[in-house]
Design a protein around this nucleic acid. Sequence first.
DNA 1: TTGTACGCGTTATCAC
DNA 2: GTGATAACGCGTACAA
Lengths: 348, 348
Amino acid sequence: MKTPKRTTIYDIAKKLNLNASSVSRALNNSGNVSEVTKKLILKTAKELNYKQNSLASNLRKGHNQTIGVIVPRVNQNFFANVIAGLEEVTYQKGYNLIICQSNESHAREVKCVNTLINQHVSCIIISVSADFEDDTHLRNIQENGIQLIQFDRVDDNLETFKVLNDNKQASEDAVTHLIAQGYQRIALLEGPQNLNIFKERKEGYLSALRKHNYPILPELMKENAWTKELSAAATKKLLNMAHPPDAIFASTSDFSALGVLEVATNMGIKVPAELGICGYSNEAFTEITSPSITTVDQYSVSMGKTIANLYFQEIKSDNKDAIPKIVSIKPKLIIRSSTLRNKDEQRI
Amino acid sequence: MKTPKRTTIYDIAKKLNLNASSVSRALNNSGNVSEVTKKLILKTAKELNYKQNSLASNLRKGHNQTIGVIVPRVNQNFFANVIAGLEEVTYQKGYNLIICQSNESHAREVKCVNTLINQHVSCIIISVSADFEDDTHLRNIQENGIQLIQFDRVDDNLETFKVLNDNKQASEDAVTHLIAQGYQRIALLEGPQNLNIFKERKEGYLSALRKHNYPILPELMKENAWTKELSAAATKKLLNMAHPPDAIFASTSDFSALGVLEVATNMGIKVPAELGICGYSNEAFTEITSPSITTVDQYSVSMGKTIANLYFQEIKSDNKDAIPKIVSIKPKLIIRSSTLRNKDEQRI
DNA sequence: TTGTACGCGTTATCAC
DNA sequence: GTGATAACGCGTACAA
């Protein structure tokens, strides 16, 4: 595809017997141009259907009004919402968003980082892939003078701006709620512990148990149960134990919680009377399962907005190197039928 | 933020007492460079942490390895999936994706188009906003020598590449299925008729009725019922009629179907025995409602891939102006409990 | 095989 | 207020 010739500021200048620099000034409202010529320039620019070439402009100006985003998957609810929030704010500021997905692969994440560096984006916003290995690519971002904001899944060891959910607190709240509902043996479905978010959720679980003098039972903690299928399998094992749990906290996602619910239903176990179930993420479907599922809302859209605002307000505006700041958003426990056994009749 | 100086091909050239053009050739594998110097160049490029400046490269080459995408909302399941599919293919080809959302606003859509034109993207992939007014902005894309692919919601009058779902056929299948299940008075929840997709779905509905010699009853067709709330309201009116429908085809979305289901449940109407419900889009939750909801799967991820492949295989490669082609993807009716009243016991 | 010279479209810095 | 010129970083025809 050969791109046909577009009209440039030279074309406009030539037509008006002016100089290109005057045209540039007029179009950018910069420097001095007389009102008359300015109007003339704007008029003929419209006539010739002039469109600025951002490539040239950005090259000359040495920066790019573009922000890169890297997420594991763009069609995962949480990330899609964060991106929606990001786009909302960046659009207002006249910035563009380049979106990449790592597909949970570290190797691909590294490639994404490199293309974004090549693109001279002014900031990279990232949530790392599940098989996070090392952070040389992230350091590379900083070495190239590009701002870096990590969110949700982050590398704790690297000092950058971070926007996080308070996973530990949210998990503690969830488990505390289960305890308050009288559940005695509360199981945990964990995600990969190399990811901060799953580690923190486990900590919250442990912390709640300790605070209420509940025993910590390793046989009730299942590793890597972070898909619907994996958690269904783990649930079967749990519920077939001699002393099965009477509640399961699917800390990885609502899909895991759904797996738990399906297994329980198939086994004829009553939820929430015989088994309490709590998920994580507040996916749309948790509201309409029967029973509806208690879960944690992460305010994903507003998280995206927070991230973007952090960039525009604290990072970009700051001419000195700003001190990497950590913003923590407190998620909200949404209590629904799947854990409300005191008011079992009340189906929400 | 001042971007610190990055290493350029000049820096590499200077260090090796070479010329920048040799460095360029070596890095791009273009032209002739001796193996020795090439290795030397690649080595020092790595040492100096050289990163290409895509801005400069693209400016020089006159084209941009970037594709722009405009959708109403990035966090709507269907669009998120299409984007995921798009990204999958474009990533393989070394292309970047710039994502914009129109927020269902025509004015904003126009602005998005303009920034993408400024960015010199090589292609714009768009699904138009609900308040589609006119197509001057789309024509503008073409006038600027940028390829244009419309998908799903398109402007029929404009001759461009299009990737569509066969909405009419899918709707006809759905309604035919309802008829086969013995439903007699089948209502339709419509979306805004200025959008092709909703118009086509209505046509499919009408066509199925005609083919089976069913009467077409205007009182059973509700306009603009395209959110959960709107369709719940429409459903209430329908079910309170003297002769209420015994089936409702929520042609706008599964969320509408969910609204129908909730209203029916609250009114004590049995689904599917007394009321059949069919949605559209195959949202994840349709599988787990009780009863599960019959719906139409649009193959959204693979639609994204199809669009991208269309660009790379047919449009980009073609040096002559390719003739705008319309690709139609046949959606698939997914039959679930909400319309299966012959085998009512079988809860899927 | 390597070097020279120029231009992509824009903006910044001069001078007038 | 306007014009001339250089430079952003790169790729490419051409010459050596």
